[in-house]
Every structure is written in structure tokens, then in C-alpha cells.
Computed example of a mutant assay.
Amino acid sequence: MSGVLTGKVAIITGAGQGIGEAIALRLAQDGASIGIIDLDTSKAESVADKIRAFGVGARTATCDVSDRDQLHAAVAEIETALGGFDIMINNAGIAQVLPLLEVRSDDLERITRINIGGVLWGIQAAAASFIERGIRGKIINACSIAAFLGQPVFGVYSSTKFAVRALTQAAAQEYAQYGITVNGYSPGTVGTDMWDEIDRILADRSGVAVGESFRNQAHAAALGRPSTPDDVAGLVAFLAGPDSDYMTGQSPLVDGGMLFN
């Protein structure tokens, strides 16, 4: 297979389903070999099989991204198996739907460890490898529309995504001297299993029918439809490819026109 990423290797966390899977498949179509890091081994292997069908390499590693040692080890394992890597996509994350008064210590700790810690540890692992090998690599982080606007019952989730946006800006400045770029991607309402769960929680809390919250969010976009994982993967493919080489520290929205920044 030939494409703009032929000969490149991308590592993607949380690539066993949803947006992460769509990103993995898109970059494979563009010619990259893919390392999949996910907590669910069977889902990761299923995606790896799809990737190999494009004629590129694939390797999986089972990992809890909130554990620094585990994530660093998983990145090193894939680096060895695939002969290095050029692109790190810190995609793994969780949602949380809770009014601020209901948030407890365990809630805060869990989402912080995954959404912020998982990105920070991935940035560290990639940057250390790129600097050691003299690679002008790319680091790409999962941000969100929630990184630009905090919303009721999504307050702590939003705070983690604001933090990812801040880490992206800081890392871009720290690693620019090595030719490493660091960017993010900020989806809006995406039709995934995560949003299905959010929708069920909102339905329980508000008494609206299941699916109504998702439809209302989708219709709030100027383009009048929800995003698909492939919409997000298209932006990530641009950030992973050569056309974004002079772009760093940015977290562009891909939300169909929900916010205008």
C-alpha cells in the first residue's frame, strides 16, 4: 500500500473501538503501520486484524493508560516490535456525567488519572523516544469541544479536557527545539459507545427519552448532524501527515459548527 504515511508507524491508545479504531483504520489506509494500546485485548486484536488486511503491520499491547509504568512499557514494546514509531496519538479517555455537588474523591481521581495522566504519560513516552532517536515526530492528543466550553453535569470532564489542551500547548513549546510537533483534536458530539452511555445517563437524570439528548446535541451543530468517528479520523490523519508539519500547539475543533473559535 502507498500513501502519505507509507513507512511511518503510529501508536494509538484506546484504539480498540470508537474514535480510536477509526483513526487506526484511516492511518493504515494512508500507509502507516499501527500499534494499538488498549485495556481490552480482544477488541485490540480485532482491530489489528482489520489493519493487517490493508497490507501494513499491526501490533497490540494491553495497558491501563493511567499507569505510567504500564504505558511507557507498552510504547517500548510496540516500538521494538514495529522497528520504531513516528506518531503518538493519545486517544484513550472516559466521560463523566455528574453535577459538581455529586462528584466524590474516587470520581475525580479516576477521570483525572485516565484523561490527564494517560495523555501526559503518552507525551512523555513519545517525546523521550523521539529525542533519543533524533526523530521529528508528531504527538497528537484527544481534546474535545469540552476543552473550550464547560457545561453543566460535564464540569469535571471538561476540566480534564481543558488540561489536555494546556498540556498540548506546553509540550509544543518544550519540544519544538527537537522538531517535534504536538497538536490535539477536539470532537463535538460523536456517535460512539461512549455517547450512547452518556445519553442513557442523561435520560435517567432528566426523564427524556433515550436518544433525545444525543439528537438535541447533534442538531445544535450548524451542519445539522452528529459527527462520525470517520469525521474525527480525517482531522487526525491531517495532523499525522506532512501537510501539518508547520502546525503545533493547536487543538482544532471538528464539531460540525457547534462552537466557533
Results as ranks from 00 to 15, higher is better:
Ala95Met: 05
Ala95Trp: 09
Gln96Thr: 09
Leu98Thr: 05
Leu98Trp: 06
Pro99Glu: 11
Leu101Met: 15
Arg104Ile: 13
Ser105Cys: 11
Asp106Glu: 15
Glu109Trp: 13
Ile111His: 04
Ile111Ala: 06
Thr112Val: 07
Arg113Ala: 10
Ile114Arg: 07
Ile114Gly: 09
Ile116Glu: 10
Ile116Pro: 08
Gly117Ala: 05
Gly117His: 03
Gly118Ala: 05
Val119Cys: 08
Leu120Gln: 08
Trp121Ala: 00
Trp121Gly: 00
Gly122Leu: 12
Ile123Leu: 12
Ile123Met: 14
Gln124Pro: 12
Gln124Asp: 13
Ala127Thr: 05
Ala127Met: 14
Glu132Lys: 15
Glu132Thr: 12
Arg133Gly: 03
Arg133Thr: 10
Gly134Val: 14
Gly134Ser: 14
Ile135Val: 13
Ile135Ser: 12
Arg136Pro: 07
Lys138Met: 06
Ile140Asp: 01
Ala142Trp: 03
Ala142His: 04
Ala142Ser: 11
Ala142Arg: 02
Cys143Ser: 11
Ser144Gln: 04
Ala146Lys: 12
Ala146Tyr: 15
Ala147Glu: 04
Phe148Tyr: 15
Leu149His: 07
Leu149Ser: 03
Leu149Thr: 02
Gln151Ile: 01
Pro152Met: 03
Phe154Asp: 11
Phe154Trp: 06
Phe154Tyr: 05
Gly155Val: 04
Gly155Tyr: 00
Val156Lys: 06
Tyr157Trp: 00
Ser159Val: 00
Lys161Met: 11
Phe162Cys: 13
Ala163Trp: 00
Val164Ile: 11
Val164Met: 02
Val164Tyr: 08
Arg165Ser: 02
Arg165Asn: 05
Thr168Leu: 01
Thr168Cys: 02
Ala170Gly: 09
Ala172Glu: 06
Gln173Thr: 15
Glu174Arg: 05
Tyr175Ser: 03
Tyr175Phe: 15
Gly179Met: 03
Gly179Asn: 02
Thr181Trp: 08
Thr181Cys: 02
Val182Arg: 03
Ser186Gly: 13
Pro187Thr: 07
Gly188Leu: 03
Gly191Gln: 10
Gly191Trp: 04
Gly191Met: 04
Gly191Tyr: 04
Gly191Ile: 00
